[in-house]
């Protein structure tokens, strides 16, 4: 598959503050690529540089073989941007908004009308097309926002947090639209989100970004397999190096390390975690255990602690998914 987007050593600085620190990745034609990271990680800045909204401090971006700096106009014709904000004119109808954005990309006459009708069908808003956008629900506005990025049939679509503040029904509709655009029209899509479920569902590959850097980049399957059989968080009154070494040596355990995070985070694990009790985690140490097989590892860990008479203050078993991968890699939750 040819490469549609190549990003090399991309850097963005504001004064001394480096927002993006030498990011490199590439996206193949027809791929849905995820940029996963918490708010403030630098996802939007990367997208802004890739779409020509911001000038990079250093590095190169090539789209469809064109350099974003040298051939900005050609690159911009290939791109479609759906920004995180509802970048629309609220008092205009959905149709008028789409016609305006279509004209900006050079569409006129019958072609413009056909494209507008097409994208209205894609986002299922044909019947409300002539109503002012300000009368729409949040989810409908999001769908018009997406349609405005699609009207000129871009080869590469950037979707920047497209489901923020959207009701479940509209969110599902957005997912379906993204999948159909990719499957039926072969559109390449860069999808940024801090919702790992969305990236897992939609993307073939993803880059996990934290503090302006890519900390992991692979297929979703391979990223999850980084955790092997899962991750177990073991709460202990204290954990020294000897304890960590002995835990690491247990059967079905790949490695054990001290988690540099406050114990309170355990109580917020939600549906992804199983805890021994519902009490807030006590103060102490949290040991993160990467398991080859989580159930067998739990049995071995409890046996070891009983044998050494070490009290267990909490136990959390994290399912292997992108959330736990991010937690494993950064010691932070995605939505902090």
């Amino acid at each position: 598959m040819p490469v549609i987007l190549e990003v090399e050593n991309l850097v963005k600085k504001y004064g001394d503050y480096e927002v993006v620190k030498g990011v490199s990745f590439s996206v193949q034609e027809g791929e849905v690529f995820g940029l996963l990271g918490p708010n403030g990680a630098g996802k939007t800045t990367i997208i802004s540089m890739a779409t020509g909204v911001l000038a990079p401090t250093a590095g190169t971006v090539r789209i469809g073989g064109y350099d974003i700096r040298r051939d900005a106009r050609q690159v911009k014709r290939l791109n479609g941007l759906v920004p995180q904000d509802l970048a629309l004119y609220p008092s205009l109808s959905a149709r008028s908004n789409l016609e305006f954005f279509g004209r900006i990309y050079g569409l006129r006459g019958r072609e413009l009308k056909e494209r507008v009708e097409d994208v209205l069908r894609i986002v299922a808003l044909t019947e409300r097309a002539d109503k002012p956008v300000e009368t729409f629900s949040g989810g409908m506005k999001r769908r018009v926002n997406i349609a405005a990025g699609l009207v000129h049939q871009p080869r590469l679509l950037f979707l920047d947090e497209p489901t923020v503040g959207v009701d479940p029904q509209s969110r599902n509709h957005i997912f379906e639209s993204v999948m159909r655009l990719n499957r039926e029209r072969g559109m390449s899509i860069i999808y940024t989100s801090h919702y790992m479920e969305e990236v897992e569902l939609l993307c073939c590959r993803a880059a996990i970004i934290d503090q302006g850097q890519i900390i992991a980049l692979d297929t979703i399957k391979n990223l999850i397999e980084l955790l092997g059989g899962g991750v177990i968080h073991v709460g202990l009154p204290r954990a020294d190096d000897a304890t960590l070494a002995e835990l690491s040596a247990l059967p079905a355990v790949k490695e054990a390390s001290l988690l540099p995070m406050p114990g309170a985070a355990l109580a917020e694990a939600g549906s992804l975690a199983t805890t021994l009790d519902s009490q807030p985690a006590p103060a102490g140490s949290i040991v993160q255990v990467v398991a080859e097989h989580s159930q067998q590892a739990v049995v071995n860990i409890i046996g070891y602690l009983n044998q050494r008479d070490i009290p267990l203050t909490s136990l959390e078993i994290l399912e292997p998914n992108l959330e736990s991968v991010f937690l494993h890699l950064t010691g932070k939750k995605l939505r902090e």
């Binding site: 802004s48 779409t51 020509g52 909204v53 106009r73 911009k76 014709r77 791109n79 941007l81 920004p83 995180q84 904000d85 509802l86 970048a87 629309l88 004119y89 609220p90 954005f101 900006i104 990309y105 050079g106 405005a148 990025g149 950037f158």
Partner: peptide, 13 residues
Amino acid sequence: ETGVLRRLSAAPI
């Protein structure tokens, strides 16, 4: 404020 200018910055105008 609504991001329209950002969207237009990404367009060939």
